[in-house]
Design a protein around this nucleic acid. Structure first.
Lengths: 262, 262
DNA sequence: CAGTGGTCTAGACCACACT
DNA sequence: GTGTGGTCTAGACCACTGC
């Protein structure tokens, strides 16, 4: 990583890969990769600060500006948060108001300054075998052990979301309905602290569906014919490893899924 | 903007506003504001290149790095696209594959390398008076003149999207059903070229709904009871001015609305 | 070849938070 | 005051594009 002279050639410059594309990778990308490795290895835990830019510049034998650009990209991806005068901190789902980082359901009245966290009710929590569909999403083999949760989220005592959640079993040993019910933290915050699983990114596929009888019952929708939003999410950790498949059914008569395009 | 010495104090530094908050604004933010003004004024048209970083640095009496940071932010907001070796270009909706920049509907089979643009069918195009709801969204007064479009988008001959579109009348003089039907460009691309209206950002609110009889008819859904996605969009131009209200009804039996969270 | 954006460095100073 | 991230400059060289 050390450069013999200022602005000297990049170490990888000019190297060709077997497929013929140049292997050029900017220094700051390499630094970013090293930082990602440290995050993934748990060298710095969520909520903690990482070393200062000057420290990292010294460690990697690189100028502060290069470290800065690497951290800029991590911050743009929400993996770290910069706080002027204090330092750079590993992102966490455990803070207040982070219940909604991955939950894009907003009251129709408009977002409040302090949106209330939903009430949670665990309906089911059991070990099971991965179906073909679950296995595909979680990069497992059909029949592998998974943990299946089902819960209902309510806003001001109105059941609004019914969620089925599938987690790869080996990463979540010891997770039970009792522990889930007793825990006050957002689920992803608890995953960080208890199972060292940090969700970093997610993809959602949204459809309109009609609930079946059981789904209507669990959401107190009997006697009505209300269409629901089906939100199918795959959540990923640092290394783009899928660690959760979640299917939510959202009532949208008093809320809406909000999104920004640019 | 000129600095008497390198790294001298920022021009606005230390200034206080009446409300007591410091008026500090980094130089690069001021440059960004000037660039935004030029974009908004049409000094550089969509698709054209803006002056080189060195040129702009000279024009504003600032270092290249400062201009660079300003352009970086514009690029992050998709207002501008950088192309190494060629220049920096004003974003446009008129290019190939940009039909889907604001349309997040994906075939369930998975995105293709060259997604086919949907077939378009104009159902209605008329001048009307803004309802209270439309006026609120477009920052107009109820009763002001608006243009109301209705169209159907089809994928491989299956009507899939029914859209109602409201535009502020004064900005779209001369837009008729005939012109719309004859135009091959994406609608936002045509808006840029013909009406100098460049959509830059949009907010969408998504719900699950049941179509009424007329909506079912227009989407060839008679005889079925299919829930649809209601996608309500407000699109904005450079100065955060809302220039379009659009309500789409999406079939999601063979497509899904896809979104990425981070 | 010249011109563009992209990377990297070194050094200075500013704004902010803690002590 | 000290240490953090944030801004700004000046200059060098690299990678890509097109003449």
């Amino acid at each position: 990583m050390a450069q013999p002279h200022p602005a000297s050639a990049n170490g990888a410059s000019g190297v060709e890969q077997h497929n013929g594309t140049p292997a050029f990778s900017p220094l700051y990308q390499q630094i970013k990769g090293l930082l990602l490795g440290s995050l993934q290895a748990g060298e710095w835990k969520p909520g903690e600060s990482i070393p200062s830019e000057m420290d990292l510049a010294g460690r990697y034998r690189v100028s502060q500006g290069t470290v800065r650009k690497a951290i800029d990209e991590l911050a743009a991806e929400n993996l770290v948060v910069r706080r002027q005068g204090k330092g750079t901190f590993v992102s966490t789902h455990s803070e207040q108001q982070s219940s909604f980082r991955f939950l894009r359901l907003t009251p129709d009245a408009g977002p409040m300054k302090n949106p209330a966290a939903p009430q949670r009710h665990i309906i089911d929590c059991r070990r099971a075998r991965a179906t073909a569909e679950v296995a595909r999403a979680l990069l497992m083999k059909p029949g592998d052990g998974v943990l299946h949760l089902r819960r209902v989220l309510s806003f001001s005592n109105t059941p609004t979301i019914l969620e089925d959640i599938w987690l790869p079993g080996p990463y979540f040993r010891g997770l039970t309905a009792e522990r889930l019910a007793a825990d006050e933290r957002p689920m992803y915050g608890m995953f960080e602290a208890e199972f060292n699983v940090h969700m970093v990114r997610a993809e959602e596929k949204i459809r309109a569906v009609l609930p079946d009888a059981e789904q209507r019952r669990l959401l107190n929708l009997d006697g009505t014919q209300m269409p629901l939003l089906s939100v199918e999410r795959v959540a990923f950790t640092y290394n783009d490893l899928p660690m959760e498949l979640r299917r939510g059914l959202y009532r949208t008569d008093a809320h809406h899924y909000s999104n920004v395009l640019s």
